[in-house]
């Protein structure tokens, strides 16, 4: 009988101890965040949506069509179309497609890219209505100059080497001048997409900046 009473008191004490902790927590401020209003502060190495960076200084496209990323991708979701430029005899980018519906965001393509062209952005809100719209083409993938500068700094990537002193007067200037005022680096995807057309002519620069191995 005494044992039973003793046990009951002990149990009640333990329950009360637990409840005390619980109630203490009911009055503290919430630890969760209001997501859409309160965007998380993502670290630079966060592996989000893939994008193609341009040279933050000159705004020329960094991709040299080496196809390393296409080859290394475990899911085979990158598709690159390029051709040999008749003038410079170097590969020239025509189309670049990434199927984000297949991508597993492993980041391997960004690791092998020799020019740090393909990068993982901090953008993760990619929900869409159709599977086709998850396939991003060159236009939607290419970042603006400001965004590229933002990510190059945030990811501590080495800046692309300046172009060799060849007759390289024209490629950068017109595109940079024609560029409209950009939004903030973390602009929404639609903004990126429509801000791009001016970049395209400049992208396959007549003289590719580097000696490729292909």
């Amino acid at each position: 009988m005494f044992a039973l009473v003793g046990r009951s008191i002990e149990s009640l004490y333990q329950v009360a101890r637990g409840l005390k902790t619980v109630f203490k927590h009911t009055v503290r401020p919430p630890i969760t965040k209001n997501f859409p209003d309160d965007m998380p502060d993502l670290p630079g190495h966060f592996r989000g949506r893939l994008a193609l960076a341009v040279n933050p200084q000159t705004s020329e496209h960094l991709c040299i069509s080496c196809l390393q990323c296409e080859r290394v991708c475990p899911d085979k979701c990158i598709q690159i179309t390029s051709h040999k430029s008749p003038e410079t005899n170097k590969p020239e980018l025509i189309e670049f497609k990434i199927d984000h519906g297949l991508c597993m965001f492993c980041g391997l393509c960004t690791e092998v890219c020799p020019t740090s062209c393909i990068i993982n952005t901090n953008d993760f809100e990619m929900a869409d209505y159709t599977r086709e719209s998850l396939v991003y083409d060159l236009k939607r993938l290419t970042l603006s100059q400001d965004e590229s500068a933002h990510y190059f700094a945030k990811k501590e990537l080495p800046m692309p080497k300046p172009k060799p002193p060849k007759p390289a007067a024209k490629p950068a200037a017109p595109a940079a001048a024609a560029k409209p005022a950009e939004d903030k680096p973390e602009a929404k995807p639609e903004v990126k997409a429509e801000a791009k057309p001016q970049d395209l002519p400049a992208a396959p620069a007549p003289e590719s900046p580097k000696k490729e191995e292909q």
Partner: peptide, 12 residues
Amino acid sequence: FEEVAGQRMMFN
């Protein structure tokens, strides 16, 4: 984890 590896669960 996210800061150092890039993702929360699939670290690689």
